[in-house]
């Protein structure tokens, strides 16, 4: 998948400036596409990845502004993927928001240890995710 350029959103971001590219990593297509749809609707550029390896490839390749990482992924999981992103000089500075359906304690700590910059528990409404992305990008 290639990054799609938003035709212009509600946020009214100037077309001249390239909107931030968000990489959504989630193996559950419905959720991934729901966030993509909403973020694009809101004026972001969005790239998608279905698993850890794909997430790494896309991140190295596309150099997104921010990565939303689901932790439970088939194959290379979110924690490992984050660790590798943070270990790589090319992607080290890209903020990673961990997103998980696991509410048990330990998940968030594990995510922080792996190098995630924020942690959000599912269910997470798209608006809430967008607010978190915006605040991360500002920082």
């Amino acid at each position: 998948m290639s990054p799609r350029r938003a035709a212009g959103g509600k946020d009214g971001q100037p077309a001249a400036e390239k909107p931030p590219l968000i990489l959504i990593v989630d193996d559950f297509a419905d959720n991934r596409e729901m966030y993509t749809q909403f973020l694009e609707f809101s004026g972001f550029r969005v790239a998608e990845a279905q698993n850890g390896h794909e997430a790494l490839d896309k991140a190295f390749d596309l150099q997104p502004d921010l990565i939303v990482m689901d932790l439970s992924l088939p194959g290379l999981d979110g924690w490992e993927a984050t660790r590798r992103l943070k270990a790589d000089g090319r992607t080290r500075t890209i903020p990673v928001i961990a997103l998980t359906g696991h509410a048990l304690a330990g998940h968030s700590k594990g995510a922080m240890d792996a190098g995630c910059d924020a942690f959000i528990t599912k269910p997470c409404l798209p608006e809430r995710l967008m607010e978190e992305i915006k605040s991360m990008l500002k920082a």
């Binding site: 559950f28 419905d30 959720n31 729901m34 966030y35 909403f38 439970s72 998980t100 359906g101 696991h102 509410a103 048990l104 528990t121 599912k122 269910p123 997470c124 409404l125 798209p126």
Partner: peptide
């Protein structure tokens, strides 16, 4: 189970 519940709920609530 919680995870399994949450994932579809996330989609339902999100959409």
């Amino acid at each position: 189970m919680s995870h399994e519940f949450r994932t579809p709920l996330n989609a339902i609530l999100g959409y």
